[in-house]
Amino acid sequence: MELFIQQVINGLSLGGIYALIALGYTMVYGIIELINFAHGDVYTMGSFFSIAIIGLLDASGQLHGLPLLLVLAVTLAGAMILCGIVGVLLERLAYRRLRNAPRLAPLITAIGASFILENIMQLWRGPSPIPFPSVVPNVTWHFGGVNLSSNEVLVVVMALALMAMLQIFIYNTRLGKAMRATAQDRDAAQLMGININMTIALTFFIGSALAGVGGFVSGIYYGSTWFYNGFEAGLKAFTAAVLGGIGNVAGAMLGGFVIGMVESLTAGFISDQWATVAVFLLLVLVLIFRPSGLLGEVLPDKV
C-alpha cells in the first residue's frame, strides 16, 4: 500500500511535467493539425535555457544577494520567452510554407527540425548529462513510509495553475477566441478579420512557453538534463495529448497525469524496464481503440 501511494505521488509529479508538454502538442494540433514533433526538444531547451540563465545570475555574483523567488521568476520568465521564440521560429521557418501541403510534408519537416534542435543543444553543452543547479531547497516530508517532496508539490501545482490560466485565456480573452475560431474554420476566421498567421504564431508561442515551464520544473525535479531528453518525454506527452483528446486543454492535463501514473506504477509494480514499453503500448492501444481520446468529442459530420 505504501509503495502504491508512493508511486502515485511519483506518477503525479511525472504527469505534471508531461501535462505541461502535452498542452503545447494539443494546442498546435488543434489549430493546424500538425504533430509538432520538435515540441519535445523545445521542452529540453527550456531546461537548457534555465540552466544558462541561473548560471548568468550566479556568474555575476548576484544569486546570493537576490531573493530566491526573484531568481526563480527571472529564470522561469526567461525560459518561457526564449522557448516561445523558438516555437515561433519553428512555425515560421519550417511549417508555414507547408500549411497547404499534404499532411505528411510538415510532419517530415517537424522530425527534421527536432533533429536540428537536438544537435544544436549537443553542440552547445555536449552529449553528456548536465546538472541542473540546485537553487531550490528541496524539503521532504515523511508520512509513515511515504515520502513527499516540495519539488513534487511544485511540479503539480505549476501544472495545474498554468492549465487553469490557459483555460481562462482561451475561453475569456479576445485572442483566445481568435485561436478557437481559427482552429474551427481557418477560412471563416480569416473572413471575420482574424489575422491567421498571428494567431497561429501566438499558439506556437504559448505552447512552447508552456514547454519551457516544463523544462524548468523538470530540471528542478530531476536535477539534470541532456540534449536527447525531449525525444522520449515528447513522445509520452504526445501520448498524453491523444489520450486526453487532442485539441482539448483539460484533456491534455488529464492525459498527462494518466501517463505519469501508468509509467510510475509499471515501474513500481512490474519493473523499471517495462515502464516505457507500457506507455508506448498505451499509445498504440489508444490510437487504435479511441483515437478521439478520453475527453475528445466525437465530432459531428460536416456536410
Binding site: 493539425e33 500538425l34 499532411r103 510532419l107 513522445l235 514499453v277 508506448f280 503500448l281 498504440v284
Partner: peptide, 28 residues
C-alpha cells in the same frame, strides 16, 4: 491490421511507438 485505418499522422506516431517498443522488448 488495427492501425492502418488511422489517419496518416497518427499512423506515423503509432509506428514510431512500435519502433520504440521492439528494441526495448529485445533489451528486456
Amino acid at each position: 491490421a488495427p492501425t492502418l485505418r488511422l489517419r496518416g499522422d497518427y499512423l506515423a506516431i503509432v509506428t514510431l511507438g512500435f519502433g520504440e517498443i521492439v528494441p526495448q522488448t529485445f533489451l528486456n
